[in-house]
Structure formats: C-alpha cells, structure tokens
C-alpha cells in the first residue's frame, strides 16, 4: 500500500522537544496519536487528492496544460470567479454586521438568530437550488409579479450568484462570532471613552483584533464558493460556454470521457485552495507574535 509508505516518510522520530514531562504524554502515546491522525488524514484526504492529480497528469504535462486552452474551460473559470467575487464580499459585509450585532449587544432570541445563520450549512445543495427555482422559475412565485421585467435570474449568472451566496452564507459570520465573543467589548469601550466615533472604533480597534479570523473566513468562504456543485447545478441550465461554472464544466468533461481535462480543472480548484491556504500559513508564521498577542488580549 502506497499510503503506508507515505506515512512512514512523514512519521517523526523525535516528535517533541519539550522537556516538561508532567504535562506531556509518554512517547508511545505521542507516536500512536500522530500515526492515528496521519493515517486518518491519508485515507480520507491525501489519497483522494493524490488520485485527482494522478488522473490529471496521466497523459503528461502537455495534455494537462492543453486542458486550459479550451475556450469553454476558460469561460467556466471566468464565471466561477465572477460568482465568488460577488458572493464573498457580500457575505463578508454580512458576517461583520452579524458578528458585531451578536457579540457586542445582549438581546433575546440570540441563539435562534445564530442557529438561523447556521441553517444554510444543513440545507441540502439540492434544496438550495430548488428554492430559487420555486421563486424565480417560470412557474415560480416571482413570475406573476415581475414577469420578464425581472430579467433572467434562473439559468443565468444572477441565479448562479444567488445559489453561491446561499451556500457560503454562514462561513464568515461563523468564523467571527466566537472570536469577537471571546474578546468582549473592553477595547472598544476604551476607544469610545477617549472620544472615537463608532466607525473609528470599528476600523482602528475591532478590525485589527479580528483580521486573522476575517482572513480565515474569507478563504474558507472563497474555497466553498468556487467549489460548489449541487446548488449551482440546479440553477445553471448547463449552457456550454455561458452558464457552466468550473465544477459543472468538470462534470461535463468527465461525462465526455475527457478524463484528463476533467481532473486537470479539478486540480486547478484544489491548487487554488492550497495556494490561499499556503498564503494563510505564511502570514500566520510571519506574524505569529502578533497573532498570539491578539489571542491573548481577548482570552
């Protein structure tokens, strides 16, 4: 088994340099835990990812890069980024507002509100697409009111954007709420008592305190926005070169027996996710001190 071999390469021989034995586990336990974690990740994450790249590179680098010269592929990449470029900023503004209202004030029904924000996580992508069909479809509720004045929503870019916003709705809010709850309102109180306006307090005090969680939420939201398949599939109409996003285009390529192209586009999505995560890791590492400081100031 190749994954066993892979694990061995990653297995540490001296997992810990810490010296305080009372708060550390015996070496055997440490190794077992690391082995369990890496084994689990290999089986469920690394191997599926690896298989995507193996398929994408099956016919060599030439075929891999040729996959990206197809105009329909390029159109799908463009559409995916348009959808993400609208969905992510909107959800970012929402996330900031929701987190501010929920963490800086006390009001009744707060848990209900939080649960409603979580709700899109639990809605099946199939249903997420269906709801927009029920509203904007030719038989939908909005039709008699707006008719053709509404322009085309379904089976065009606006529908795809709406579906993307829906499935990525909670990410940024969910990332910010716990952190801001932990940080409380003391820093803001201080700024306000020194005469800062609300906006100044937000941009100069709150924002620097939460920028890491914010960045993190944006990355996750973006990853999910570019990768969404189910909901977008229902509202897209699958018109080639017009309403296919990257995930939909991957399905089409796969169904056309163009396996190399299909996995090449899939690998591009995976690479994008990893690049953003690598950037995140790099920033975390460079600003580790700052990061620790923000964490402490709240905790």
């Amino acid at each position: 088994m190749n994954h066993a071999v892979k694990d061995a390469a990653f297995l540490p021989f001296e997992p810990l340099k810490q010296t305080n034995s009372v708060i550390n586990e015996p070496r055997l336990v440490r190794w077992l835990l690391i082995a369990a974690a890496l084994g689990f990740l290999s089986l469920f994450l690394l191997l599926p990812l690896l298989s995507v790249f193996v398929e994408a590179l099956r016919k060599g680098a030439g075929a891999y890069f040729a996959a990206f010269s197809d105009p329909e592929t390029l159109a799908s990449i463009k559409l995916t980024f348009i959808a993400a470029a609208i969905a992510v900023p909107l959800n970012l503004i929402f996330g900031l507002c929701a987190a501010w209202a929920i963490t800086k004030f006390e009001f009744r029904g707060k848990q209900l509100l939080i649960t409603m924000i979580d709700l899109p996580f639990s809605v099946s992508p199939v249903v997420a697409g269906l709801i927009f069909v029920l509203i904007f479809g030719a038989q939908g509720w909005a039709q008699p009111w707006f008719g053709d004045h509404l322009g085309k929503v379904l089976f065009a870019t606006p529908g795809i954007v709406l579906a993307t916003i829906f499935v990525t709705f909670p990410f940024i809010a969910r990332e910010l709420i716990p952190l801001m709850q932990e940080q409380g309102t003391e820093d803001e109180q201080a700024a306000l008592s020194l005469g800062a306006t609300g906006w100044q307090t937000f941009t100069r005090v709150t924002l620097p305190n939460i920028k890491w969680a914010l960045l993190y939420g944006v990355l996750l939201c973006n990853a999910r926005a570019t990768g969404e398949f189910g909901a977008v599939s229902v509202v897209s109409g699958h018109i080639r070169g017009l309403t296919n996003t990257m995930p939909l285009h991957i399905e089409i390529l796969y169904n056309e027996y163009q396996f190399v192209s299909a996995f090449a586009v899939a690998s591009l999505l995976a690479l994008l996710a990893m690049v953003t995560l690598a950037v995140k890791s790099l920033l975390e590492w460079r600003y580790a001190d700052q990061l620790a400081a923000t964490h402490r100031s709240g905790g």
């Binding site: 609208i86 900023p89 085309k152 100069r204 924002l207």
Partner: peptide
C-alpha cells in the same frame, strides 16, 4: 492595514458587480 483591506475589498466588490451585470446581460 485594516482600512486598506476594507477599501480594497470594496473596490473588488464593485468591479465584480459591474462585471456580473455585464455578463448577465450577455446571457439574456
């Protein structure tokens, strides 16, 4: 810089909205 971040985000959002509006009309 937090403010820089915000203004950049705002600009990106605006550009994206315009691009989407154009793409939308093209599809119709």
């Amino acid at each position: 810089n937090a403010r820089l971040l915000l203004s950049r985000l705002a600009r990106t959002a605006l550009a994206a909205a315009i691009a989407a509006a154009l793409a939308g009309t093209a599809a119709v």
